[in-house]
């Protein structure tokens, strides 16, 4: 299946979304990412039982931190799909990209970037 999804999306592969910790998401924002989204397996189907549920909780934690910092909290999101759902994957990428276009680039990206 050849599917197109927006080219601005960078994929970071992890063995399970349970591996995604708060710092990984924050680092992406620190380095100027406009948004971060995690795509996990459908809830209830995690091979490691609760990896995707933990990820969701961490995404929510980062959302509250963005809020505290004064950034749109929807810039970080959790999506779920099953491994056979390529089109859904592409749809999520489009949805996220559309949202970012709507709210504009990260206010941090334009600020001076310490890590670079």
């Amino acid at each position: 299946m050849r599917l197109e999804y927006p080219a601005n999306v960078r994929i970071v592969r992890v063995p399970c979304t349970g591996k995604v910790d708060v710092m990984l998401m924050l680092r992406a924002f620190q380095k100027g990412a406009d948004g971060v989204y995690c795509v996990g397996c459908l809830e209830g189907t995690c091979h490691y039982n609760a990896g995707n549920l933990r990820c969701r909780e961490r995404v929510e934690h980062v959302q509250s931190m963005l809020d505290e910092m004064g950034m749109e909290k929807e810039r970080v999101r959790m999506y779920n799909l099953s491994s056979g759902e390529g089109p859904t994957f592409a749809a999520y990428a489009k949805e996220m990209t559309a949202y970012i276009k709507e709210v504009g680039p990260s206010p941090l990206g334009t600020a001076q970037n310490k890590d670079e």
Binding site: L26, R27, Q30, M65, M69, G70, L108, A111
Partner: peptide, 10 residues
């Protein structure tokens, strides 16, 4: 990280 970003934002 949170402090760094909040201060850059302000």
């Amino acid at each position: 990280a949170e402090i760094d970003m909040a201060r850059r934002l302000s």
